[in-house]
């Protein structure tokens, strides 16, 4: 496992990035917070992130597109989808397309930290198993 997990946070709500970036940096992650999903797609293309946390409903590009781009770039990346829309079908679609977990808004910073910790653990296990394809 790498020393610092690279986390990309995508949400068009500025306050989500403003609050979660310090809350996650504090526990030792390297966090990049973006409000513009188009820019996020470009960053995903340029970089390999360990964990991507993305809102599902955004202007222009939605979370499912971010998820698809991340999966296309690297099957190793764990994508956590945040949704304010309590929609079972949407959550199922995200899980079917390879999301690690779905978190419903509103959530506490601790909830996300727990899910990220689980994702980090999964990455760790996968690392030890020699970079196999991620479990669904």
């Amino acid at each position: 496992m790498k020393d610092t997990l690279k986390v990309l946070l995508v949400d068009d709500e500025k306050m989500v990035g403003d609050r979660l970036k310090p809350a996650l940096t504090k526990v030792g992650y390297s966090v990049e917070a973006l409000m513009d999903p188009q820019k996020a797609l470009r960053r995903i293309d340029e970089n390999e992130f360990d964990i991507i946390v993305t809102d599902i409903m955004m202007e222009d590009v939605d979370g499912i597109q971010i998820l698809e781009a991340a999966m296309k770039k690297s099957h190793r990346t764990r994508v956590i989808v945040i949704t304010g829309y309590a929609n079972v079908n949407l959550a199922r679609e995200a899980m079917d397309k390879g999301a690690f977990d779905v978190i419903e808004k509103p959530f506490r910073p601790g909830d996300l930290r727990n899910v990220i910790a689980n994702a980090a653990k999964a990455l760790d296990i996968q690392g030890e198993m020699g970079h196999q394809s991620p479990p669904n």
């Binding site: 709500e13 306050m15 989500v16 609050r19 809350a23 304010g84 419903e104 808004k105 509103p106 506490r108």
Partner: peptide, 13 residues
């Protein structure tokens, strides 16, 4: 849920 989430995150932080 969006502003509610902002309130919850801000209050917890």
């Amino acid at each position: 849920n969006n502003p509610l989430n902002n309130i919850m995150l801000t209050a917890h932080c």
